[in-house]
Design a protein around this nucleic acid. Structure first.
Length: 477
RNA sequence: GGCCUCAUCGUCUAACGGUUAGGACACCAGGUUCUCAUCCUGGCAAUCCGGGUUCGAUUCCCGGUGAGGUCACCA
């Protein structure tokens, strides 16, 4: 049974790179009806940031990634917080000491630094094992504990990268336990993955160089490594660097606040470095679970293209039913909509659904439905059709429209269209002029839905009032 | 510097050695009685370079080049 984990360290918010790793691990577990585990790797107390764990959890929940085992849920291999598992790591470290596969590091920081400087000046890679002490002191926990490696070359198969190889120079005596009593990632992730029966380890590219070290440790521990899958980086769109926090990677929750749909984000992240081989671009969550596979993950890094994310967001907004969309946009209405009924809001929502790229767009493009807009005469002066008309003509058109609507009993969209068509004949104007005048007079907005729909939703009283107030200043000018 | 990895339109990508190298985003042009958006149609645009292997290489091999990673008491 497939068991995967996402194991972030609580050092701040989640950005898209980290979320994608979690997503891929979750997808393969879902696909196999397996288990997805959230483990928190808090072994570096200096870098820890308060509130990170809660933020990681809410980021995953927002995206719709749920876990079956974790610090909040418990599970058969609890605890899932590494700082609560220190005794376990110490036990395993002791086993390695007893087997002669680990030893205390006797050097001071300065001595180590000197070794490194030597390596650097002679343009050699630094290998601690070249300085392995002959008679290391007994490990009492106050010194770092190092792995006594068995340098050899390895070939292994990566679920994404295929066959990989490295020589013995990639193997070194790395630190297992730090002098503060905490284990290093290099050690404890291996212990935990084994104890938690993880079947697939997914992580990003930077770990590829240290994989031979891990393979060496797996051997020393006498355990079979899980399936390893290396994910290529997500790159910043304009740079050649991987997308990281210091390069402007945004908190994934910022996208939620900016009106992005979690299913759009999931679709975007999944197809960033993966495709199913078909020409399908839009995937629902279920389709992703069904179709995802590590074999089709790209080997090379992909750039984070926000334009594509924006497009996908629009596509997913259009896929939603009005009722569903209505639930999603609750926090995005303009303040003027505060007293409007749900029914009215849904009617308006149906009109603007095709115009939304993000949920945040809702506020600006619906405001004039709820509150009287402020006339902006420049919109007429700058309109390429209307600026040619003199004020009397404009006022005449507005009066004609007002008269026609006043007499009309049918204020449905169809009825209004009939009135508008009649007006085209009686005024002898082109739609480009007549409709623009009316549209601006009732909305004073740069754009709006189809005129008949807009007027119908606004209602007869408001339409007449706005046409009237647009007439007066125009005649006075 | 050693070691490791990667390489198709600007971007994301497709193409079990044989295709006019396909699709999508973006961009440009046109269409849908007004605007914006949607939708539709069309356009622009790519196999890093050099050698092999082969009747035939985007595809396989070798060598360059370029990019990234790694060589932490960080993960």
């Amino acid at each position: 049974m497939t068991r995967t984990r996402f194991a972030p360290s609580p050092t701040g918010f989640m950005h898209v790179g980290g979320v994608r790793t979690a997503l891929f691990a979750w997808l393969i577990a879902q696909k196999d009806h397996g288990t997805f585990i959230l483990r928190i790797e808090d072994t570096d107390k200096a870098r820890e940031v308060d509130g990170s764990i809660a933020q990681i959890e809410s980021s995953l929940r927002w995206l719709g990634i749920d876990w079956q085992e974790g610090i909040d849920k418990g599970g058969p291999h609890a605890p899932y917080l590494q700082s609560e598992r220190l005794a376990i790591y110490k036990d395993w470290a002791q086993k390695l000491v007893d087997n002669g596969r680990a030893y205390a590091d006797p050097y001071t920081k300065d001595e180590l630094e000197a070794f490194r400087d030597d390596a650097k000046t002679s343009k050699q890679p630094f290998l601690y094992r070249n300085h392995r002490p002959e008679n290391p002191p007994e490990w009492d926990g106050s010194q770092p504990l190092r792995f006594k490696s068995d340098p050899k070359s390895y070939t292994w198969t990566d679920a994404v990268m295929g066959d990989l190889a490295a020589g013995s120079e990639a193997i070194d005596d790395f630190i297992l336990m730090k002098s503060d009593g905490y284990p290093t990632y290099n050690f404890c992730h291996i212990v935990d993955d084994m104890l938690m029966e993880i079947t697939h380890v997914l992580r990003s590219q930077e770990f590829i160089s240290s994989t031979p070290k891990y393979l060496n440790l797996y051997e020393a521990l006498g355990i079979a490594p899980p399936i390893l899958a290396t994910l290529p980086y997500v790159m910043a769109i304009d740079g050649k660097k991987k997308l990281g926090k210091r390069d402007g990677a945004k908190d994934i929750l910022e996208y939620a606040n900016d009106g992005y749909l979690p299913e759009a984000m999931m679709n975007f992240l999944a197809t960033l470095g993966w495709n199913d081989g078909s020409e399908q671009e839009i995937f629902t969550r279920n389709e992703l679970v069904e179709k995802f596979s590590l074999e089709r993950v790209q080997k090379s890094p992909a750039r984070f293209d926000e334009q594509r994310l924006l497009w996908l967001n629009g596509q997913h907004i259009r896929l939603l039913s009005i009722d569903d969309l209505f639930e999603r946009v609750r926090d995005f209405w303009p303040v003027s909509a505060a007293t409007a009924s749900d029914e009215r809001k849904k009617t308006i929502l149906a009109l603007v659904q095709d115009r939304l790229k993000t949920l945040k767009d809702l506020s600006v493009i619906t405001d004039y439905f709820f509150a009287d807009p402020t006339p902006d005469w420049n919109m007429i002066a700058e309109n390429k059709q209307l600026k040619k008309l003199d004020n009397d003509t404009l006022a005449g058109l507005l009066h004609a429209a007002k008269d026609a609507f006043e007499k009309s009993d049918d204020f449905s969209a169809d009825g209004i269209q009939n009135t508008l068509n009649d007006l085209l004949e009686t005024t002898g104007q082109k739609p480009g002029i007549l409709f623009s005048v009316i549209r601006l007079a009732v909305s004073w907005a740069p754009f709006s839905p189809a005129l008949n729909d807009t007027l119908s939703v606004l209602g007869k009283d408001i339409v007449l009032a706005r046409l009237d107030s647009a007439t007066r200043p125009a005649t006075n000018q």
